[in-house]
């Protein structure tokens, strides 16, 4: 209990309280510009979301975005971690190189990708080299979300890889040695030693990615501004617009708590399925 107290106290005050305040705001109409302050309206904001086509569309976009990024960001990262966990020449440099995207500031990264995706950018140049037609990656509603997802996978790989690396290091080497002595081949060692050993970290990685991806905002803000045809307007982007462009913190907060509920349910399901010790 005592070990948890400082963290619980801090999070209670500086994280939970603002969230509860937001929950209260979701039951009000509130514009920080107005002098009146919040006015209670009960569940009107939530009821309004039932018929809000833009909100529904944003939830679909968000789910699609998470579904596109998550499998790749986790599977590729695991693969890279398995490789980077081996000892080979220059391993430190490889690890640093693979981790690099995680630490390059998102705004700067997005600018590079804006250039890579631009009509005269590197991707179109590569397409031209292999004899394909150039594309307007970010301006076409058929490809914009995939393009943003591509950048996000790249950005997420390094962080996930480091987590898997830490997880791999925590698996006692004796387990592998024993498995080898029992005659297990490489696949069997991976299947019966590595994967179960990584289970707690994998749970964390999946939930962490769901939490982050479902709140994607900055890369969309910079790369597409939610367009074209709102095909990249995620729920968090819509929340930002509602709060800071339309100054309606009540509805923005209600949207945020619906999004929160979705993230929580998905995360809880993952925690239930994967979190249990075997």
């Amino acid at each position: 209990m005592l070990f948890v107290a400082p963290a619980a106290g801090y999070i209670g005050i500086f994280h939970l309280f603002p969230v509860l305040y937001g929950l209260y705001l979701s039951l009000t109409t509130y514009s920080p510009l107005d002098r009146g302050g919040p006015e209670l309206v009960g569940f009107d904001n939530y009821a309004g979301l039932l018929n809000d086509a833009d909100f529904h569309a944003s939830v679909r976009v968000t789910v699609q975005f998470v579904a596109e990024v998550l499998p790749f960001a986790v599977a590729f990262a695991l693969g890279l971690a398995l490789l980077a966990n081996r000892s080979t020449r220059g391993i430190g440099l490889f690890r640093a190189g693979l981790f690099l995207p995680r630490i390059v500031p998102l705004a700067a990264v997005s600018l590079v990708w804006l250039w890579l995706y631009s009509p005269d950018g590197w991707f179109n140049h590569v397409l031209g080299q292999v004899g394909l037609e150039p594309r307007t990656w970010l301006l076409d509603e058929g490809s914009a979300l995939h393009a943003v997802a591509g950048m996000r996978i790249w950005k997420a790989l390094g962080g996930n890889m480091v987590l898997f690396l830490a997880g791999l290091q925590a698996i006692p080497r004796a387990l592998y040695e024993a498995a080898t002595m029992d005659g297990a081949n490489a696949w069997q060692r991976f299947r019966y030693v590595t994967l179960p050993g990584l289970r707690p970290v994998t749970t964390y990685v999946v939930i962490l990615n769901i939490v982050y991806l479902a709140q994607s905002f900055a890369e969309i803000f910079i790369l597409t501004g939610g367009g074209p045809l709102r095909s990249t307007t995620t729920t968090n982007f819509l929340i930002y617009e509602e709060a800071f462009q339309n100054n309606r913190f009540g509805t923005a907060s209600a949207m945020a708590f619906v999004l929160f509920a979705l993230i929580f349910v998905f995360s809880f399901m993952v925690l239930r399925r994967m979190g249990r010790n075997p």
Binding site: F14, P18, Y21, G22, I239, F257, F260, I263, F268
Partner: peptide, 27 residues
């Protein structure tokens, strides 16, 4: 009650920043 405290703590990470920005600013 550990599980409850734990869930409560990590669930705060699932609420978009737009909502908590103003209360945190006031604090």
């Amino acid at each position: 009650g550990g599980t409850l405290v734990f869930l409560l703590m990590i669930s705060t990470a699932m609420v978009p920043v737009a909502v908590t920005l103003i209360p945190l600013f006031l604090m």
